[in-house]
């Protein structure tokens, strides 16, 4: 099976097509509702404030050519203060649609992992950047947690465990490309097909 390792090159992204299964490796960052709202309001729409410069610089480096994961994990804190992921499946991505395209462009993201797919703005940003949307298997939280080999750190823990930005190293994290950098969204295709069936069933 094809593997992808962060940081990911544009060539690798362009070679991916909607429907491909890939195994993701390397360092990625979790971020969901609070994190996306925060990045837009504090870094993208406004100049970075001095007390948040360090966080911004860290994220810039982590996300450049990198991947953000829509995930609110269950996390175990060990006696020595270190963390490990107990359960870590994807959360529904469409809630980030209003933010995602700007975040992809600003941080030079190459991939967004989540579930349920995203909309037209994100698909457009994927084509331009280029980047891809990677669909993890919703609910497969214990399985995916096993591919999280290490928790390297956490930002914005004050958002709560699910909403914090966890920096993790993954090995062979299985995902399906459902939105590629060529303008194809598997979600749009399935939606159109199912609409035809629905119309047939209720007309």
């Amino acid at each position: 099976m094809p593997k992808l390792t962060t940081p990911i090159s544009d060539e690798e992204i362009r070679s991916l097509k909607a429907g491909d299964t890939v195994y993701l490796n390397g360092i990625i960052v979790t971020g969901r509702d609070a994190a996306h709202k925060f990045m837009i309001e504090h870094f993208i729409k406004k100049p970075v404030q001095p007390d948040e410069q360090e966080l911004y610089d860290d994220l810039k480096e982590l996300l450049d050519g990198g991947v953000i994961y829509h995930c609110g994990p269950v996390v175990k804190t060990h006696d020595d203060g270190s963390y490990s992921f107990v359960a870590a499946g994807p959360t529904t991505s469409i809630r980030e649609e209003v933010y995602q395209a700007d975040v992809i462009r600003h941080f030079n993201l190459k991939g967004v992992i989540g579930k349920g797919g995203m909309g037209g703005n994100t698909l457009k940003a994927c084509a331009e950047q280029p980047a891809v949307y990677l669909h993890a298997i919703g609910g497969a939280a214990s399985y995916i947690a096993q591919s999280v080999k290490e928790v390297l750190g956490v930002y914005k823990l004050e958002f709560g465990v699910p909403e914090a930005m966890w920096v993790i190293r993954v090995e062979d994290f299985p995902v399906v490309v459902t939105m590629d950098s060529h303008g194809t969204s598997l979600h749009d295709t399935i939606q159109a097909q199912s609409k035809e069936v629905l119309v047939g069933l209720i007309s």
Binding site: C71, A87, A88, I137, G139, A140, A141, S142, A145
Partner: peptide
């Protein structure tokens, strides 16, 4: 997807960890 789901169900039960993080 169903393969991964079934594997996940087995792992969760064996390790006594949540099937889904939500």
């Amino acid at each position: 997807a169903l393969d991964t789901i079934l594997l996940n169900v087995d792992i969760a039960e064996k390790n006594s960890t949540p099937i889904c993080q939500d």
